[in-house]
Simulated scan of single mutants.
Amino acid sequence: MAESLTPEQLTARTSAAVDAAVAAARDLGLAVTGADVLHDLFSVVVRLTPAPVVVRIPTVLPHSVSLDSLARRQQAELDVTRWLADQGCPVIPPSPLVPREPVRRDGFSMTFWPFVEEDRDKAPDYPANSESVADLHAAMRAYPGRLSFLSAAEPDFIGESLVLLEQRPDLVGPAELDRARREWRVLEPFVRSRRAFEDRFPGIDLQPIHGDCPPANVFNGVDGNLYADFELVTSGPVEWDLAALGPDLEAAYDRGARRNGMRTLDEDGLRFVNAVGMLRVIASLTLVPQLPVLMDYLRPAVDQWRTTPFAGGLTG
Rank of each mutant, 00 (worst) to 15 (best):
R26N: 05
R26Y: 04
D27E: 13
G29R: 11
L30G: 13
A31M: 07
V32I: 15
V32K: 04
T33P: 07
T33A: 10
A35F: 06
A35K: 03
V37R: 00
V37C: 01
V37Q: 01
L38C: 01
L38T: 03
H39V: 08
H39D: 07
D40E: 11
D40A: 14
D40K: 07
L41N: 08
L41T: 13
F42H: 15
F42D: 14
S43N: 15
S43Y: 03
S43E: 02
S43V: 02
S43Q: 06
V44P: 02
V44K: 03
V45C: 05
V46K: 00
V46D: 03
R47A: 07
R47M: 00
T49M: 07
P50D: 11
A51V: 11
V53L: 08
V53T: 15
V53D: 02
V53C: 05
V54C: 02
V54T: 02
R56D: 00
I57A: 13
I57P: 00
I57N: 00
P58H: 02
T59Y: 02
V60D: 01
V60K: 03
V60E: 04
L61Y: 05
P62K: 04
P62Y: 06
P62I: 10
P62C: 05
P62E: 03
H63F: 12
S64G: 09
V65C: 11
V65I: 13
S66C: 04
S66F: 11
S66N: 05
L67Y: 06
L67A: 14
D68N: 06
L70W: 06
A71H: 03
A71N: 10
R72D: 11
R72Q: 14
Q74Y: 01
A76Q: 11
A76P: 02
E77G: 06
L78C: 09
L78T: 06
L78F: 10
D79S: 15
D79T: 12
V80T: 06
V80A: 02
V80C: 03
V80E: 03
T81P: 05
R82F: 05
R82C: 07
W83N: 10
W83C: 05
L84C: 07
D86K: 05
D86W: 04
Q87S: 06
Q87R: 15
G88Y: 09
C89F: 09
C89I: 12
P90T: 14
P90N: 08
V91T: 10
V91H: 10
I92Q: 04
I92A: 09
I92L: 13
I92G: 09
P93G: 15
P93R: 09
P93E: 10
P94C: 07
P94M: 05
P94H: 09
S95Y: 01
L97I: 12
L97D: 13
L97C: 15
V98E: 12
V98L: 14
V98I: 12
P99M: 12
P99E: 06
R100I: 14
E101D: 13
E101G: 10
P102M: 04
P102R: 01
V103M: 13
V103I: 13
R104N: 08
R105L: 08
D106W: 09
G107C: 07
S109G: 03
S109T: 12
M110E: 01
M110R: 00
T111F: 04
W113D: 04
W113L: 06
P114K: 08
V116N: 02
E117I: 09
E117S: 13
E118R: 15
E118D: 09
D119V: 14
R120P: 07
